[in-house]
Every structure is written in C-alpha cells, then in structure tokens.
C-alpha cells in the first residue's frame, strides 16, 4: 500500500508538471477565447500601445478598420472573427462628436486631434522614442487603462 501510494503521488506530480505548461500554452494560442480588452491588447498591442477607443471618433475607427491592409504603412489584417471583436470594442467606446473627424482623403491620426497637439505637440521625438505613436515611451502605464495591465 505504501509503495502504491508513493508511485501514485510521483505519477500524479509528473503528470501535473507536464500537463500544466501545455495547458497554458494551448490557452495562449486561441485569441477568440479572450475577453475583448485582452484581445485588443494582444492584437493591437503587438506593434503599438493599445490606444484607447476614446482617442478617436467613430467615423475615424470606421475608416481605420476598413483599411487594415495598409495600416499606417503596414499590413495589419487579422482573421475576420478577431477583427469583428476588436472593431466592436472600438466602435462601442469611441470618442465623442467633439473630436475632429478626419477628411475622407487622410487616414485618421490621433496626433492630428486638437487635444493631442495641445498636450503633446511640443514634445521632441528623440531616437529612443522613435515615433509620435510611441506614447508608452514616457507614459509607461498607458495600457493600464485597458483594464488588464
């Protein structure tokens, strides 16, 4: 009985060690199971900080999600089911009517908004920061507002 228990516990421990990392890995691959804010952080946040939906009005997000194949100079397309969830998150939480709507010729830019220019227009973009899009270079907690970091 003693031997049996020892073997069983050893086997269970071994199974636990092997099963746990694999389970964690499997969960990480299926984006469709994530809640919308975590999906946004994973998908949008891979290249830039996950900008808050209220940074742009609905009209701008509409255009942005229709042009993901040329997203500020890069292909940022996602599978249709994932795009739908991300798009819905941005449309539902978009900024107010008082934001500047981009003209039909230009691509929407947060940095073209009057409030952005007023607050950030004079910040010098050093090589470390690289881009006006890199809010996270200074605002290290920027993504915490998305609710999971």
């Amino acid at each position: 009985m003693r031997a049996l228990t020892t073997t069983t516990i050893a086997a269970l421990a071994l199974a636990g060690c092997i099963a746990l990392p694999q389970a964690a890995n499997a969960a990480g691959t299926d984006s469709t199971k994530l809640p919308p804010n975590e999906l946004v952080l994973k998908e949008c946040g891979a290249c830039h900080i996950a900008y808050l939906p209220r940074f742009l009005p609905e009209s701008a997000w509409t255009r942005l999600f229709a042009t993901l194949d040329n997203h500020y100079g890069e292909d940022a397309t996602m599978p249709a089911d994932i795009t739908a969830v991300v798009r819905r998150f941005y449309m539902d939480n978009a900024g107010g009517f008082y934001w500047t709507s981009p003209s039909t010729k230009e691509i929407p830019r947060i940095t073209a908004q009057a409030w952005w220019k007023r607050a950030m227009g004079k910040v010098e973009i050093t090589p470390r920061i690289r881009s006006k899009a890199n809010c996270g270079a200074c605002h290290t907690h920027a993504e915490w507002y998305m609710g999971v970091r």
């Binding site: 946040g45 290249c47 830039h48 690289r130 881009s131 899009a133």
Partner: peptide, 9 residues
C-alpha cells in the same frame, strides 16, 4: 538583438 516596431514597441 531585440527589434523595435515603427511605433516604438
């Protein structure tokens, strides 16, 4: 080496 996206990540 680590890379960097055009948006700085």
């Amino acid at each position: 080496q680590m890379g960097q996206t055009r948006a700085g990540k």
